[in-house]
Design a protein around this nucleic acid. Structure first.
Length: 274
DNA sequence: AGAAGAACCTGGTAGC
DNA sequence: TGCTACCAGGTTCTTC
């Protein structure tokens, strides 16, 4: 489900509620697949009950809830994950995997498709989870720039879209915002990455930051079932993503859908150069 | 090494 | 209404 802007939106909201609060009780569905990489899941409640939340951070699409005692609770929302903060009692359906109770509210992880992951780390030792351990630079940091992309794109024949989706190249870019960034920089997502000129790479790295920042301002993009932790959708309106057959907002051409790997990619063949 | 494809899951929806 | 086919924003593993 969520890419960097959606996770960042949820992070901000969860941060406002959780920081400084103490965990009272933890419920988890022991059979849930979101714990499949997490050997210590049965000890999770005992380990974190009573601990205070120090910070809520994000790395790529991973949420990192930092607790007292050097503990980090990692939550990845996968494709369909939601973190919902709510007050009072409420039902718990079969898609709920984890519930953390605080003094006046609770936070629930729902994930129908179960591509999400939850794990607990000590002293930020993420080595047991390669996806998190090997993440590339944050796209909004200055380490993510034209020099970095040029180095990563050099000699590569894969479509630029495929490389933008590589979390080792830019942590948190997903299927929507890779298409959006290609559109802003007028590059076809299908173009072999190694054939993109220096000044185009410059545009692309700026476009990535631009679309991500705009989407964060809009609290993410609502497609299908994404909701913020307060239960509402985001306002970001995609320029190309999901707009097959509609007019390009820049040149009036017709947006088409192509396959990149097994993913859909949307772009305007009129103004995005191959 | 890099590229392509499949696999992991369930739910929603378009089309017949 | 009911069935089938296909779609889905992520990550990881296998194969060539």
């Amino acid at each position: 489900m969520p890419e960097l802007p959606e996770v960042e939106t949820i992070r901000c909201q969860v941060e406002d509620r959780l920081v400084g609060q103490r965990i009272k009780k933890v419920w988890l569905r022991k059979s849930s697949l979101v714990f499949r990489d997490f050997k210590g899941k049965n000890r999770l409640p005992k380990t974190i009950e009573g601990k205070k939340v120090n910070a809520v951070k994000r790395r790529g699409k991973y949420l990192l809830i930092e607790l007292e005692g050097g503990l980090t609770l990692m939550i990845h929302l996968g494709m369909s994950g939601n973190l919902i903060v709510s007050e009072g009692a409420g039902g718990r359906d079969r898609h709920c995997h984890l519930e953390i109770f605080f003094k006046d509210f609770r936070m629930t992880l729902r994930d129908p498709r179960m591509f999400g992951r939850v794990a607990l780390f000590k002293n930020r030792d993420f080595s047991s989870l390669p996806g998190l351990d090997a993440l590339g630079p944050e796209p909004l940091s200055k380490d993510f720039n034209a020099e970095w992309l040029s180095r990563k794109f050099k000699g590569r024949k894969a479509p630029v879209k495929a490389l933008l989706l590589d979390q080792k190249i830019g942590a948190g870019i997903g299927n929507i915002y890779s298409d959006e960034a290609c559109h802003v920089s007028r590059i076809s997502p299908l173009r072999p990455a190694g054939k993109i000129k220096k000044e185009e790479i410059e545009k692309l790295s700026k476009a990535v930051k631009k679309v991500l920042n705009r989407a964060i301002e809009d609290m993410g993009c609502t497609i299908r079932d994404y909701k913020t932790s307060e239960g509402v959708g985001g306002d970001y309106q995609p320029l190309v993503y999901g707009r097959r057959g509609q007019r390009c907002l820049r040149c009036g051409g017709t947006i088409i859908r192509a396959r990149v790997g097994s993913r859909s990619s949307f772009y305007c063949p009129e103004c995005q150069e191959y």
